[in-house]
Nucleic acid binder design. Structure first.
Lengths: 336, 336
DNA sequence: TTGCCATATGTTATCGCTAACACAAAACTA
DNA sequence: TAGTTTTGTGTTAGCGATAACATATGGCAA
């Protein structure tokens, strides 16, 4: 692969002139420019971004670290990130932590090795603190999304889990439900905790007793709803509705209910956070949901990064809270 | 961020000795090694991969270009790619072409700029030829997966679309169906063409007339099954079964049928290529499918790349054909 | 005509690292 | 004991690009 010196020699100019043509910087006579361009074309010259990044001290690369890129929420975040980054001339490296601290750590180190200019991270859990601290130590622009990590202060974009959970729970109550169960995600994740809190508060505000045995914590590892659904269904009185904390949990629960031949919403109502689109367009029934604008999580995160990268140093970490939309669909059923 | 020279100075050795410690190459006295390591720790030294890649002429990076990372098939390919690459010490950059030639082209150029060591590509269509040719011109190790591109000879890993399509069609015929429709993906993609061919052949072998109006070409842009389903359903006689060419098309069709209140498989049987897992675990009914081992597409592709990267030059492009598994599920129904 | 500025191009140093070679000193071999 | 090999470390050059400065024109105002 040819380099700038070879091009320069063939075009009978200095490498610097070639560089000027490449970057459209400084003065170059039109005639010279054309000649250089012709030689570049002829030699199939492609500038070496590695060398550029080295001298410019800038890689024009961002990293997005998410727990699970197959999750439609994060896929959409990725889209938002990529689109906005491209507008600013940046590339994005996508990293999948698989909700695994060690994998997340590896990617964190990779980001340092590659000298990425900024990082967007949906933490795999509270353990992520160590990884985030390491990044902060190097003053790499950093935005956390979706999940807040205790004891770490960074720019942050989260959904309003509390409000969403309240609205969903209230919706069930308004429909006449009094025995409402909840299946949360791992409580090591901030969104799970907040959604649980919103659920509890709303029950209390409506004078409904909170019951521990109505709350189950699903794991991201298990592929099925396993034991906890049986437990829930065996409770007395049996819940008439379930609030699932996110799309992943919802998929588990819906599948579990189907296996047990329990109809939604006739036998049991369901409300959830997040979507299961697009492939799950085939899901039945369509789920009543607190819909988060995942795309905005990504694009806004990039905007925050850009301000930190280009701009004057900003002292304070910023916190953006995005409201979910409550979309009423069939799964929550009719008024009892 | 500190560099190798600063570490060297502080450790009172030459940069070369630090480099030796870093790379565990050459001779370094244990005592010196410990001292250097201590200084690296103390200074938070992280080697600069850009500089390394520049001098080594090797980026230790592969690129995976796929049309749609949200498609469970490609997500699984990505997993296979990443896992195998990591085993060999390589990173993977994931690129989403969105089935868009221009975006694919941009990513192709990015790969060149970044001097990636190898590329795995699921072409967006036959137009991709130009992009592949550009890559070939630079002799970058290249493996095409899933889709073959006319007029380009590269290492290739494809599923046996012909055999899969034959098996699925035969399955329907064996169940007693005689009026079998097909919804293909864009015919600019080799898999679509081959699956269509397998369908046609099998019909003929069973003495069933092939009808043009039983075949519809779905687009990846349209989110719904739009007009073509109505057309199919209005045909005389109305088809009793549909063969969908992949998971994306299947999702469209299943959704469309549901909107039209047509039951699967009672009113209409469905068979398809690919899975819709994991989020579509909630899909109902479960689809009879020619299941491709997506993970192997990815991991095998990396193995082929590695042979080209490390090994002696291999003259001939290689072609690997992976067999799909036929998984019979509820959507194809009972014997008529 | 002098001086200044815009234009056009080149030279040198440097980004951070490693390959290749050089050179001691220590350890072994004959 | 002299010669060879192993061990340990340093020096120099170069990967491919650009920043910063240097230099040389020509044009134009004063």
């Amino acid at each position: 692969m040819s380099n700038i010196n070879e091009v320069a020699k063939r075009a009978k100019v200095s490498p610097m002139t070639v560089s000027r043509v490449l970057n459209q910087s400084g003065y170059v006579k039109e005639e010279t420019r054309q000649r250089v361009l012709a030689v570049m074309e002829e030699m199939n010259y492609v500038p070496n971004q590695l060398a550029r990044s080295l001298v410019k001290q800038k890689s024009m690369t961002l990293a997005l670290i998410v727990p699970d890129i197959t999750n439609p929420f994060f896929t959409t975040v990725a889209r938002g990130t990529e689109d906005m980054a491209r507008k600013s001339g940046y590339r994005v490296i996508f990293c999948n932590s698989d909700d695994d601290f060690l994998k997340e750590q590896e990617y964190t180190e990779m980001c340092l090795l590659l000298r990425v200019d900024g990082i967007i991270m949906a933490a795999s859990g509270d353990r992520s603190k160590a990884n985030l601290e390491r990044l902060k130590k190097f003053n790499i622009p950093l935005v956390c999304i979706d999940r807040e990590v205790k004891g770490i202060d960074t720019d942050l974009i989260v959904g309003d889990s509390l409000a969403g959970a309240r609205a969903l729970t209230q919706h069930l109550i308004d429909l006449g439900h009094r025995h409402i169960a909840m299946v949360t995600g791992p409580l090591s994740i901030s969104t799970s905790r907040e959604r649980l809190q919103g659920y509890k508060e709303t029950l209390r505000q409506n004078g409904i007793d909170y019951r521990d045995d109505y709350v189950k914590e699903a794991s991201y590892n298990q592929q099925t709803s396993g034991q906890y659904l049986d437990d829930l269904l065996a409770s007395t009185p049996r819940p008439t509705a379930i609030f699932t904390a996110n799309n992943f949990v919802a998929a588990q629960v819906v599948r579990g209910l189907r296996e047990r031949q329990i109809r939604v919403p006739e036998d049991l109502a369901i409300v959830t956070f997040d979507e299961m689109e697009p492939y799950c367009a085939v899901a039945e029934p369509l789920l009543t949901s607190a819909l988060q604008h995942a795309y905005n999580f990504g694009s806004l995160a990039v905007q925050l990064l850009m301000e930190r990268i280009d701009g004057v140093p900003i002292a304070q970490p910023r916190r953006i809270v995005l409201n979910p939309d409550i979309v009423i669909r069939r799964s929550s059923g009719e008024k009892l």
